[in-house]
């Protein structure tokens, strides 16, 4: 069981060049994959192709052996700007939309809706509130609840933490961790993946629509995405002055490594 992209290219109608060129990857069940790269490198386009929201101009995508159009129930997708994706009168109707649309019986719809709302950590008191009246961070959580309500095997999140405050970002990271722990395959597009590096299995780096790195996160692959950080920079400086620290992405991981090295 896996998601496969073979030699996928995508060109927007009327655009000069392709937004994605010959991308091939395979994502196994239960993996947490972060797709990163600079603005315009093709992250959103690639994950929309993988999820079957747009059809590749060339190449093919298969989900558990099926074409994405035939695997709708296996896929959940939360778009980057939640305010453009919320239409219903109440949070409850919004989250129930997917399961209802699949023709599930009402008590099953209620059960799935409640579970999805609990999973993202929104208070059930907010179920009767209009989604558009919520804060940006809560809208994002509602959009994710919508994407997971029908219990898809594959969840796609486009820039889930962009524009959120500290609490919102922390929540999203925790949520991704728990969805992964529950066995969901999660594919995140992010231009700023630092918060996810300690928990992700793989980092796919795009540059100009091409996959230029695919593997466990490393300083080198981050470099290809144009990403560096104070923690990475300091680890390098410490190594060059004889303190033997490991490669670390979060300051907390580096602190552990410094303690070890100083022993």
């Amino acid at each position: 069981m896996s998601l496969k992209a073979e030699d996928v290219s995508y060109r927007y109608p009327g655009a000069g060049g392709p937004a994605i060129s010959s991308a091939s990857l395979e994502i196994g069940k239960g993996e947490l994959v972060v797709v990163c790269g600079k603005n315009g490198s093709g992250k959103s386009t690639l994950i929309r192709c993988l999820a079957g929201l747009i059809k590749p101009s060339q190449g093919r995508v298969s989900i558990d052996g099926q074409a994405p159009e035939k695997a709708r129930r296996a896929i959940g997708f939360a778009v980057q700007f939640p305010e453009r994706a919320l239409f219903e009168r109440t949070v409850c109707d919004e989250v129930a939309f997917g399961p209802r649309n699949m023709g599930l019986p009402p008590d099953e719809v209620d059960r799935l809706t409640g579970q999805a709302i609990d999973a993202v950590g929104i208070s059930r008191d907010l179920m009767s509130v209009a989604p558009r009246s919520l804060s940006y961070g809560r809208k994002r959580l509602v959009a994710i609840a919508c994407a997971i309500a029908h219990r898809p095997g594959y969840l796609f999140l486009d820039e889930p933490a962009a524009g959120l405050d500290y609490e919102g970002r922390t929540r999203i990271t925790g949520l991704i961790k728990s969805l992964k722990a529950a066995g969901m395959t999660v594919i995140v597009a992010s231009h700023d993946p630092l918060d996810l590096l300690d928990i992700c299995d793989r980092l796919v780096v795009l540059d100009g629509g091409r996959v230029v790195a695919d593997g466990p996160p490393s300083v080198e692959s981050l470099g290809r995405a144009g990403i560096t950080s104070d923690t990475i920079e300091l680890a390098r400086r410490l190594q060059s002055c004889g303190i033997n620290v490991r490669e670390a992405f979060s300051p907390e991981a580096l602190a552990d490594s410094i303690v070890e090295a100083l022993k």
Binding site: Y166, D230, L234, P251, E252, L254, V259
Partner: peptide, 13 residues
Amino acid sequence: IGLPEMTRLSNGL
């Protein structure tokens, strides 16, 4: 609020 990475490191140490 979020703190700068190096502030998190000095706190962590």
